[in-house]
Design a protein around this nucleic acid. Sequence first.
RNA 1: GCUCCGUUCGUCUAGGGGUUAGGACUGCAGAUUUUCAUUCUGCCAACAGGGGUUCGAUUCCCCUACGGAGUACCA
Length: 518
Amino acid sequence: MEREVRVRFAPSPTGPLHIGGVRTALYNYLLARKLGGKMLLRIEDTDQNRFVPGAEQYIMDSLRWCGIEIDEGPEQGGPHAPYRQSERKPMYMQYAMQLIEAGHAYYAFDTPEELDAMRARLTAAKVTSPQYNSITRTQMRNSLTLPEEEVKQLLESGAPYVIRLKVPRKEEVRFNDLIRGWVVVHSSSIDDKVLMKSDGMPTYHLANIVDDHLMEITHVIRGEEWLPSAPLHVLLYRYLGWESTMPQFAHLPLLLKPDGTGKLSKRDGDRLGFPVFPLEWHGKDAETGEPTVSSGYRESGYLPEAFINFLAFLGWNPGTTQEIFSMPELIEAFSIERVSKSPARFDQNKVRWYNEQYLRAKPDSELAQYLVTSLHEQGITADLPADKAAQIAGLVKERATFSADLAREARLFFERPTGYDEQVISKKWNAQVAAALGEFAQELPAAADTTPEGIKALLTQVLERQGIKIGQVLQALRVAVTGAAAGPDLMAIMSILGAEETAERIQAAVAALTPQAS
RNA sequence: GCUCCGUUCGUCUAGGGGUUAGGACUGCAGAUUUUCAUUCUGCCAACAGGGGUUCGAUUCCCCUACGGAGUACCA
């Protein structure tokens, strides 16, 4: 029988999740849904020193905002609960003991100082890789070198110890990565990794393998930073006797900083001037303890669908020219084999473009809600009927990248001009224009047809009478009505504003500008 | 240093032994628009270098260079 596909996203709650992490979660989710499997969230909080309050909640909130649904996890529970490693602490020791009994692990009593001394000694001796391994362990204080009696005594006396994996001296370790193909590493380059720490907590390596096995994970999709330790994990599966159900590995290429070099890190956020986090994060400066705020995609006005679409394409593509994919379409098209091997740099322009595309594709009625919300945020609380909001949203959406732009573009409907564009005034405003506009303003309130077309017809009529071409006054009229030299279609603006309001604005402009216009 | 991974336009990428090396973003130019924006059209722009293998290599192999990751009782 085929095993049910089960994948997991396993972040450690040391801070906000950055976009690289979101992409890892996304690919896991896409694969799970594509193959009709389950998506788990497991919190890897075995390092008590790096625990950050609120980070776990942040991770779950972020995934929810992105539309990545979790089937089993700390919030939703599941057959393999608990899903936090700190709560699973009692489960790990027995597996470490199993390894010791089988001769694949051992106790080590070396103090941090002794370890430092060992590394310093090896470095001084120009050893190419100064590590705790099959050679050096013979000179350290562990259950392989100490007499059995002494080991027993140390353990009974409560002396601090760790449990290390006994990596074989000469052996090729290989595995078939779904993205990179066969990866071969010689065991001599792997060190005797700590499995259980002296505080009784497992390290990542042990906890990860034990939990993936217990939770019946079939595919491990994670960042490339894990590639060098993957052979170690293979060894653990083997020694624990779980090799036949070992998950398949897929190591994702890294996300690089848009500038310079190196992988994108949490710290790059504000330095780069655009968000690296899905949601805004309120943290503390590591050194000063001062509160800090890191901006998020959500707060910057990005639509989650756009953000996800963009992220999915950073390192993966469907092989067609289609660029816009909804989540269901991504699920349908996704395959792990089409994930690229090389790292990707973040492109600010492309995310913006995606957001524009999604914003414009939204129906006006939905955009209207964004509009009202961001108007409120900008302090404009005027009563706005739904149909009018939709009308305005439809008019300004072509000019917007973010939902907040909707409100910025719509301000002119709620605020009369507080000044007039000087360049246009000096070039286009004169007594003749003022007179024509004044007449237009007088006739407007009585107009029968206040559609954009109707207004244009009226304006044309007035101008013909005055003997002026429309091109001579339109700029001036725009400034009179909106104050600005550029904006959405003028006739549509006047139509939405209504005849009365438009007329009053024109009259105010004529009054304000005429004295200086002669 | 050592181990592992990678390298196609500025960026994201398609492709693959014989192609005018394709698309998208950006940029530039033009058209439309009373304006800005939108939209449309066009243009600029790439196989890291050197050796093989081959009739032929950007594609396969090797080396070099460059980039990245890992090298903790962090994940």
